[in-house]
Nucleic acid binder design. Structure first.
Lengths: 233, 233
DNA sequence: TGTGATGAATAAGTCTGACTTTTTGTCCCC
DNA sequence: GGGGACAAAAAGTCAGACTTATTCATCACA
């Protein structure tokens, strides 16, 4: 996705980041810059830049005379898109997917309510277009085409909410939806009820009915939670 | 708060970061590493490390033959605690405070519902302790004491939700609450209704009543929204 | 006139080696 | 056993030389 390891320090990050977030180095582990530089066959300057980035993500802490120590998971900047991507790509994937889906179910209904109030005519048009695209690809194993429109739909909602914090979760939601299609079990066509709900949300937003948009979106996210067995049956 | 400019590169960040997030450099502005290094009187290695960190926050983008270009606000990692702190300290403060309060109003009710299901006995005890502390400091201009317990209360709720994404918003909520007390108008004692709501939330969580905890917390956050005139009267 | 290739200028990227500073741990003396 | 001086270790800093990618301008050619 967005930023594949640009430059040497980026390449180092693409290896060290996933290793740390996967828990290969337990909290408190000590790494030494010089040793890492040798291991990755880069200069110390490059290694230091990589460590600085990991430090800004609160994955590690660098202290004189001690070294680079790995921080506890509870301190990580779990909203950093790169951290999210690393965790989704590694052993932490299931837990990460659950956390993010719970987050979605809190954010998206609120975003839909705001979108119903603030969406421009253009955004409403985009929304119905996405919903129609989902309908068109909902049968006959067109999962990829369905996914594209599903992602676009939720991205428009988040953007139309007018809240920058919500808007920046578009990438996260995209990752979750893509993950569900690509890695989880999804042999069959999407649930027709879910497709209908998306169409109805588009209608509610266009009509400016915030309460209805919020309620319908909550039903969508409840469905997502149930897929992961987060909700009791 | 947490990480005051450690090291030279940290000092540079504490100056450049706020400047960028305050909009002093319009999107597309081009900075040159060498010039910045001279301006801050540091070596290029140090300057490069600072740029790497800004880059990981998506505040800037570094390209060969071009320089370090400032990105549009819509690309910033607005969930990065350091970015949030910089924006809260600068001209962006009002908008940042509104965005965060809207975020709170989406997250905290959901977190309270989860807390009602997952909170340990110890966490329940902490919660009532915080609520009682709020009551004790609710009269007679003991705003600082009230604030401490208010922050602790919301932090416990977020932690008790059992969701790591929610838990990591504890610092953000703390900043918002502290900001309200310190910078916004708050001459009088806190609203008695709000104090009562906190006590009731603690009770609901202890009783395991998720729906009630969620509803009561939503009332708290609605109050916060109204204070900022986000909700129409 | 427009277009594509060539080349030069530029700023980031990289490497190396020497030096400084802080922190920790140890050893010795009281 | 406690406290202070000393030594070692690792990050932090700096300066300079070199490499590489990218952009822009120029020029030849169609």
């Amino acid at each position: 996705m967005s930023t594949p390891g640009r430059g040497l320090h980026g390449h180092v990050l693409e290896t060290l980041g996933p290793a740390i977030t996967a828990g290969e180095y337990p909290p408190g582990s000590v790494l030494r810059t010089d040793e890492l530089a040798q291991r990755f066959d880069v200069s110390r300057s490059v290694m230091r830049e990589a460590v600085r980035v990991l430090e800004s993500m609160h994955l590690v802490e660098s202290r004189r005379r001690v070294g680079v120590t790995v921080r506890a998971k509870s301190e990580w900047n779990v909203y950093d898109p790169q951290v999210i991507r690393w965790r989704l790509a590694g052993a932490d994937r299931p837990q990460q997917l659950r956390s993010l889906t719970v987050l979605r179910s809190a954010i998206e209904p609120a975003a839909a309510a705001l979108a119903a109030k603030h969406a421009t005519a253009e955004q409403c048009a985009e929304l119905t277009e996405c919903a129609l695209g989902m309908v068109a690809h909902s049968r006959g194993h067109q999962l990829e085409g369905y996914l594209v429109h599903d992602i676009a739909f939720h991205r428009v909602i988040l953007n139309a909410s007018g809240n920058e914090m919500f808007a920046r979760l578009g990438d996260v939601v995209a990752e979750v939806l893509a993950g569900r299609t690509h890695h989880e079990v999804m042999f069959e066509d999407p649930d027709p009820a879910a497709v209908t709900l998306h169409v109805q949300v588009a209608e509610a937003v266009r009509a400016g009915d915030a309460a209805r948009a919020e309620h319908l979106t909550r039903e969508i996210t409840v469905g997502a939670l149930q897929e992961l067995d987060i909700l009791a049956p």
